[in-house]
Design a protein around this nucleic acid. Structure first.
Length: 696
DNA sequence: GAGTTTGAAACT
DNA sequence: CAGTTTCAAACTC
């Protein structure tokens, strides 16, 4: 992996522009082949999401893993990019902007270190970076949409973690950086955050909102280290390092974190939940103990925004949260959860590590952090159930951090949003008799397995987004980044797909052939078949013709859209999800890559979906084209043009349940590819699954 | 906040 | 596979 990656890394490092070169390069192709992930970076992020969206089969909470991966990815990307510089800089100058650095600073800040501590801190700082790196790497490997990133990071990481000498150098560099940062403390954090966010944004254009959330999280990376680390690891790390013994520390630290991270990513879901909880209680305690500035920030930030937790976990959640929301509210837990994820990875592994470090740490000082997560959870659990009803945020917003209100399902069925999202219930949940907690991990896993046995895609994101358009670039780089659609489609009869009752609408995607809805007026895209013809023609046509059509369609749409939509008049009436307008823009996207935000938009737009649906319809012929849809067809073309969207076709149009991704996925993917460029996207996402496990 | 509506999930 | 029931979110008042 590393070798091939390097090239990409360099290119990546360069910036977005280099990417194209990359992609073209044989090496890139080779890499892409290796991993399901697509090459395009900007898209890649999106892809990652999409891919992530599919829950990996792993016994553990797959979905969570995914999420964690994603997050990590973002980090990675960041890190990778910045990282290269920083590493170099370490020797001499320090790069402020790098994400990692900020983290380090935070750590230092948070926990003033004594002489011994300083060493530890140094190590810890190194560790942290390593962790980040590792995170990025590992996930990349598995998920690898960001293979490039991974490759980039890999080199840096290796030396840090493994090589003793290198580690020393790294430490030195880190310290320097820390020192510098300390000088700049607050400002740096801001910068770092902003920088990080920017980087992230650039890299992962996919879901604007989701992205934001991610970004926030990333920005919160500081938090993670501060709060999350504090709560879970941080203290441990700081203390643990010394405990372990200076000499040995290096290796263990480097190694463990990485591993843990990996495992976490893969197994992450659970932890994530844990993390969430952690934040609630632990943060405070930790904050008290350590007083870290970071915490303060975290607190302030925590209010922040988004919670992407679910995102990671489930695309659905992400999509939903992002879109619907408006979500400004971020739950602390979400952040913490992320943090934990990043660090903690799989529960067991994490624990082991943590426990080790913690034990040492505990011996020295703070017991609080010591407490094993499991322990923590229980408490949280007990309190959580009732405590809070949903926080001020309407449930919807909170989606990012899922909160449920289950009374009879014990949060062990898909009725439970938390469970469905692959996350544990947390305090904010108002569920009763909740079993979706770390304490009942076994039960949760068993139940999950059961459900998955019934429907392998049960925990996969409901809304599948494909970012490939770019990949397909062959068609048009400009094309919409990705289309999204509901995996199964909706079955709305009364809501006209204009309310959140409709999962398609809720997910911010248009209805597709897969939908069995009646009177569909989905603002994001009505289900219709007419588009097929267009699609086909589109494929046939040269890009130029394609674009021409697009322009025409757009014009038509612009003019007609209101009229057509009018039937519903819904658009106006129903608040459009944030993406909507974005979607509109997409069509316009030219070959030039869209800014991240744009991609986002595109992703969100359901319209693309329709294309897929249309195509599928033509093939399947399942649903007769609705009269309404026909009207829409005009609109659809835009979408079609824009979206290379992958089709779910993997999913049987009729069947409610999606065929298992794994088996079908590849096939479906092939099928998709056959049909059109757009379809590829879906398939790719599927491949990601396997990767997760193996990496572990 | 309580009650109703809605559609997915689960069950038969 | 289709129909029914259960469930919890979304929505309304």
């Amino acid at each position: 992996m590393d070798k091939p990656q390097k090239n990409p890394t360099t290119s990546q490092i360069g910036t977005s522009t280099p990417k194209s070169k990359f992609e073209d390069s044989p090496v890139f192709n080779y890499i892409s082949n290796l991993s399901p992930i697509e090459s395009v970076k900007s898209i890649s992020t999106a892809q990652t999401f999409s891919s992530l969206s599919f829950t990996s089969p792993p016994p553990v909470f797959t979905s969570p893993h995914v999420s964690s991966h994603r997050e990590s990815r973002f980090f990675r990307c960041h890190n990778s990019i910045d990282r290269t510089k920083p590493l170099e800089d370490l020797n001499g100058s320090v790069c402020k902007e790098e994400v990692e650095v900020p983290v380090i600073e935070d750590l230092n800040k948070e926990a003033p270190l004594e002489d011994e501590e300083e060493e530890t801190s140094v190590e810890t700082s190194s560790e942290l970076p390593q962790i980040l790196k590792s995170d990025s790497q590992t996930p990349d490997r598995s998920d690898s949409p960001c293979t490039d990133d991974v490759t980039v990071e890999a080199p840096s990481d290796i030396p840090l973690g493994e090589g003793g000498s290198s580690s020393d150098d790294v430490k030195m560099g880190l310290q320097k950086m820390l020192d510098v940062r300390e000088a700049n403390d607050t400002p740096n954090c801001g910068r770092l955050i902003s920088d990080a966010t920017e980087l992230l944004v650039f890299r992962s254009p996919n879901d604007s909102e989701a992205f934001r959330c991610l970004v926030d999280k990333i920005s919160s990376s500081e938090r993670r280290f501060c709060a999350g680390v504090k709560s879970t690891k941080r203290p441990d790390i700081n203390k643990a390092v010394p405990v372990n013994g200076s000499s040995n520390e290096n290796e263990p630290l480097a190694v463990l974190p990485n591993e843990s991270v990996f495992s976490l990513h893969r197994g992450g879901m659970r932890r994530r939940c844990l993390d969430f909880e952690m934040p609630g209680k632990r943060k405070k305690e930790i904050a008290d103990d350590q007083q870290s500035v970071c915490d303060n920030k975290a607190a302030g930030e925590s209010s922040s925004r988004c919670v992407v937790p679910s995102i990671g976990l489930h695309l659905n959640a992400v999509a939903l949260s992002a879109r619907d929301s408006n979500i400004n509210v971020v739950h602390d837990y979400s952040i913490s959860g992320e943090i934990q994820k990043s660090f903690s990875g799989s529960t067991t592994p994490i624990h082991s590590q943590d426990t080790v470090q913690e034990t040492s740490d505990q011996a020295e000082n703070e017991p609080v952090e010591e407490v094993p997560r499991a322990l923590v959870f229980p408490e949280l659990n007990t309190g959580s159930l009732k405590k809070k009803k949903r926080v001020s945020e309407p449930a919807g917003e909170g989606e990012s951090c899922k909160r449920c209100n289950c009374k009879k399902s014990k949060c062990l069925k898909l009725y439970c949003e938390c469970f469905a999202a692959g996350v544990y219930c947390i305090e904010p949940c108002s569920c009763i008799d909740c079993f979706n907690k770390p304490v009942h991990e076994e039960t949760v896993l068993a139940t999950r397995k059961q459900i998955e046995s019934r429907n392998p895609l049960a925990f996969a994101p409901k809304v599948i987004r494909s970012a490939d358009s770019i990949m397909e670039a062959g068609d048009d780089a400009s094309k919409t980044p990705a289309s999204a659609r509901h995996k199964r489609g909706c079955n709305c009869k009364k809501s006209n797909c204009l309310k959140k009752y409709c999962e398609c609408y809720q997910g911010g995607v248009g209805c597709s052939i897969n939908c069995r809805c009646e009177g569909c007026k989905n603002v994001f895209g009505r289900k219709e078949g007419a588009l097929l013809a267009i699609m086909e023609s589109k494929q046939e046509e040269d890009q130029e013709t394609y674009e021409k059509r697009r322009a025409k369609i757009q014009h038509k749409i612009e003019g007609s859209s209101e009229v057509e939509q009018n039937p519903s008049s819904d658009q106006p009436s129903t608040p459009l999800p944030p993406y909507r307008h974005l979607v509109v823009h997409q069509p316009f996207l030219s070959k030039n890559r869209l800014p991240p935000t744009q991609f986002f938009i595109g992703m969100g737009s359901s319209s693309f979906r329709k294309q897929d649906s249309d195509l599928t319809q033509s093939h399947n012929g399942k649903k007769p084209v609705d009269p309404v849809t026909e009207d829409k067809t005009e609109i659809m073309p835009e979408i079609l043009l824009n979206s290379p969207i992958a089709n779910n076709k993997a999913i049987s149009p009729n069947s409610k349940r999606v065929s298992p991704p794994q088996l079908g996925s590849s096939e479906s993917g092939s099928n998709l590819r056959r049909r059109g460029n757009g379809r590829k996207l879906i398939l790719r996402s599927i491949p990601a699954f396997p990767s997760l496990n193996p990496n572990q």
